[in-house]
């Protein structure tokens, strides 16, 4: 599904990713870990198409298509979803209208009719319950005045409604209490399916107790320096990153 080869990315001239390789098949969950400043969030942003991130070398192939050549919304239409590390507020735009506009935008590009207001409301309410958000949040402005945990649940809500093919979760677990962590994990596990791939960017092994990844990668200095199974995360938990980064240097 996703094949990243020798990816080099600069931000304002500064090289952040320096030859990253990563291949993910449909149905897989990959965790990407690594020290601060190693380029994890850059990878997420580049996959989603954020402006200001320049691919200087290498390629990102998504279902055989050059992902880097697409606008952010075009990637969304093709099923790429990014759960933001720091979700922004959009005051005055209700969550419900935002969610429905998103869902309808994606449906339109699949040649499907727009959702009916009533059906969508029912679906949105049910999904709210699933992620542990009161349905009042549908009436509030997007992320407006939400706590950190509520914002993350809201990202999850969007993900479940949009049913992406490739979901990238950028530190969705950070700043969450144990209960919220469980909800996020349940949400992700619900999405797991043979057609979907999920990339979990995280600092902590604890998320991986709930979502068991197929592969774990360590990103450092803009490259993946070690890949392994779920046991790699446990090893990192125990030893930190030092032994790997020193070895890589």
């Amino acid at each position: 599904m996703l094949k990243i080869s020798n990816l080099h990315v600069t931000i304002a001239g500064e090289a952040i990713l320096k030859g990253l390789d990563l291949e993910i098949a449909a149905g897989e969950v990959h965790a990407i870990m690594g020290p601060n400043g190693s380029g994890k969030s850059t990878l997420a942003a580049v996959l989603a198409g954020r402006e200001g991130y320049e691919v200087t070398e290498g390629s990102i192939e998504y279902f055989g298509e050059d992902l880097a050549a697409l606008e952010p919304e075009e990637r969304a239409w093709r099923g790429v979803f990014l759960a933001f590390q720091y979700p922004v507020e959009i005051p005055g735009v209700t969550n419900l209208e935002f969610l429905r506009a998103s869902v309808d935008a994606l449906r339109a590009h699949r040649g499907e009719a727009a959702t009916s207001a009533v059906d969508f409301m029912k679906l949105a309410r049910a999904t709210c319950k699933q992620v542990g958000l009161d349905t009042d949040f549908l009436k509030r402005g997007v992320n407006e005045g939400f706590s950190g945990g509520e914002k993350k649940r809201n990202e999850l809500l969007q993900m479940l409604l949009l049913e992406p093919k490739l979901a990238v979760l950028d530190e969705t677990d950070s700043g969450l209490d144990i209960d919220a962590l469980g909800v996020v994990a349940d949400g992700v596990n619900t999405l797991r399916s043979p057609e979907r791939a999920i990339i979990l960017i995280t600092h902590y092994q604890r998320l991986l107790n709930h979502i068991v990844p197929d592969r774990v990668h360590v990103l450092s200095g803009g490259r993946i320096i070690r890949s392994g199974g779920k046991e790699l995360a446990l090893e990192l938990e125990e030893k930190g990153y030092g032994w790997l980064t020193e070895a890589a240097a």
């Binding site: 989603a48 954020r50 402006e51 990637r75 969304a76 239409w77 990014l82 922004v88 998103s102």
Partner: peptide, 10 residues
Amino acid sequence: QLFLCRQRGL
């Protein structure tokens, strides 16, 4: 904000 909206397909 713009990026969030575009990421969601708008």
